[in-house]
Computed example of a mutant assay.
Amino acid sequence: MTISGSCFCGAVTYKIEGKLRDARSCHCSMCRKAFSAQASAYALVEQSEFRWLSGEKLLTNYESKHGAGLQFCSKCGSTLCGTYKGMIHGVTLGCVDGNPDIALDRHIFVGSKALWETVPEGVPQYEELPPENA
């Protein structure tokens, strides 16, 4: 399966030769601020299956003191992927072009969600990380 993605202005593009996995919505305060939204929606990807096609020099990196980070377009501000200790870990589902053939399978860090947010029912919710990721 080939999945493509791009930023809002179209300057940065990527391709994934494989499948996304473990789609989730993170409600932690860090993701809320980084995405200016109630949560971030992203899926994990194998680094070996991911490749930048254009605009890689336009990427800006941010890494927290815990090693979790983001890469975003310095032109339009779109957050394209998440990193861990400098390595691509996942892609934001909002920047995937077309149908990635995946659905959110969990909501994480709902213990720190915004007070005004209602998390939909029917999908597993975790106060922090799921036990297998803790």
Rank of each mutant, 00 (worst) to 15 (best):
K75V: 05
P100D: 07
A41G: 13
C95E: 02
E63L: 15
G5Q: 01
I16A: 00
V91W: 00
A114C: 12
L93G: 03
R21W: 02
P130Q: 06
D101C: 12
W52N: 02
F50D: 03
Q71W: 01
A114I: 07
G10C: 04
T2W: 00
C95S: 09
S4C: 04
W116V: 08
D22A: 07
Y14S: 00
Y84V: 12
V96Q: 00
F109T: 03
A68C: 15
L58N: 08
L129V: 05
T118F: 08
G18F: 00
H107T: 04
G67F: 11
P100T: 08
C76K: 10
K57H: 15
F50N: 06
S36A: 10
E127F: 13
L129Y: 06
A39V: 06
G98P: 14
G5N: 02
Q125A: 10
G111E: 03
R51Q: 09
Y42M: 12
T79N: 11
M30W: 03
G67S: 08
K113R: 12
L104N: 14
Y84I: 10
A134W: 14
S78F: 01
M87I: 11
T83H: 04
L80V: 09
K85M: 13
Q125R: 15
N99F: 06
V12L: 00
K19C: 13
P120L: 07
K85S: 11
L115V: 13
S48C: 13
W52H: 08
S4D: 00
C28K: 06
R24E: 10
R32W: 07
P100I: 04
F72M: 04
D105Q: 15
N61P: 04
E117H: 15
G82D: 03
E121R: 12
L44K: 09
Y14C: 01
E128K: 14
V96K: 00
A39N: 10
A103Y: 12
C31K: 14
Y126S: 05
H66Y: 12
I88Q: 00
L93S: 04
T2A: 07
N133L: 15
S29Q: 08
L59M: 13
G98V: 09
S54H: 12
L104I: 10
K19P: 03
C9V: 09
M87T: 07
G10H: 01
S74P: 07
P131M: 11
D97Q: 12
G82A: 11
A23C: 09
P131C: 08
C31I: 11
I16S: 00
G77N: 14
S78N: 05
L58M: 14
Y42E: 11
G98D: 09
F72K: 01
S6M: 05
Y14M: 03
E63G: 08
R24W: 05
C81Q: 02
L115C: 11
T92F: 00
Q38F: 13
Q71C: 14
C26A: 15
P100H: 13
C81V: 08
S112R: 07
I108T: 07
A68D: 10
V119C: 06
C81H: 02
G122S: 09
L44P: 03
R51D: 02
L129T: 04
A43F: 07
L104P: 05
E117P: 01
K113M: 11
K19E: 09
P130W: 04
A134R: 07
G86A: 09
P130K: 04
Y62E: 13
